[in-house]
Amino acid sequence: MISTPPNGEVLFLYIFSEEPNLKQSEKWKRGLPYVGNKGQKAEKIIDILPAGSRLVDVFGGGGSISLTAASSDKWNEVVYNDRRKTVVNLLKALIKDKPHFDLMNYVYMDRETFYSWRDKMPDSIERTLVLTIWSFSNDLRSYLWGPKNEKDKLQLTRALFLGDTGTKLDGLYSYAKNENSISGKYRLFHKWRLAEMDISSHRDHDQLQQLERLQQLERLQQLERLQQLERLERIKYSVLDYRSLDIKPSDVVYCDPPYIGTGKSYGGFDDDAFQSWLAKCPAKQIYISEYTQLPHTEVAFILGKKLSFYAKGKRPDELLLKYVK
């Protein structure tokens, strides 16, 4: 399918609904495990955006667009911008390993400790790290697990990393003790779990089935990959409000703002102010991710439905829009 805007330029329309199968060595491109991150679709978006001298990732979030762009040869410079300073500085710290975070220190956290970090600690890179790892759906507010399975998940985590639960799960500690990385221990956990399910009683089998995932370890191993990167010289870090960015006519601009109608969840984002900014933005190439087609835009690409473990019911297709002036 193609769509022809008023200026006669032809835009090819893609439909995309599956996450590309990233190699293990490339999964660092997903960036931070952050709400709204484009990890599932970043490769396709970067393929579609036009090449140029500089890409400006206006609402950078978890950084998957900027990281994927920086690993390509399409732009000489990539500006990763987000007004949430601690989010930008967390990604920067992990990539540059300065300051260094020993991620093993964050594998275990109970509900009370999480709420203490959320409510009593000042805003900081470390607080953002904790809330990102230990919040449900990365919302930075709710504890990762519900009361129903919290005890079992924490016990399993202690067994894997400390071996001090006083249960037969502590055998997992000996099984994985020679692995020094979080990803290595988590890989052996899955191997151990499958082996135990083959020999366990029916009751134990059901418990192991329910303990299929330790989400905090999945997020930590994602951050672990970022720490293993060499410096990405193409990325420039920015913490400005989008209206304060110095954008040039030659820039390629990508915007992933809070979606229409969700502004209250993001500190009162003003949709009308964003529309006004788009009209004044000097860049000739502006692309926007949205579920709703905005005024003065053409649907350039259909990215498909967002894949989510927690999604219920039908979800609309996400669109990649091109702003037409």
Rank of each mutant, 00 (worst) to 15 (best):
I65L: 05
S135V: 09
N76L: 05
L144E: 02
V107Q: 05
E112Q: 13
L140P: 00
D102F: 12
R118M: 01
R30I: 04
E26N: 14
G166R: 01
A42Y: 09
H296W: 12
M197N: 00
P249R: 04
S200Y: 08
R141N: 13
Y259V: 09
E126S: 03
S137T: 07
S201R: 08
E43D: 05
G313Y: 03
F301S: 15
M121K: 15
F189L: 05
N180R: 14
L144Y: 02
G313V: 00
F12H: 07
V10T: 15
I48R: 09
Y14M: 03
F161L: 08
L162E: 15
Q293H: 07
Q207M: 02
Y115V: 04
R193L: 08
R219G: 03
G60A: 08
E230G: 12
F161T: 10
M121Q: 15
I48V: 13
L223H: 05
D270F: 11
I235W: 14
N7V: 07
D204S: 04
F301G: 06
L278F: 04
Q285E: 00
G171E: 14
F161A: 01
K236F: 01
S71N: 15
G263E: 08
L55F: 03
V107C: 07
Q209P: 00
D204K: 05
T297F: 08
K148D: 05
P316G: 11
L94A: 05
I95S: 09
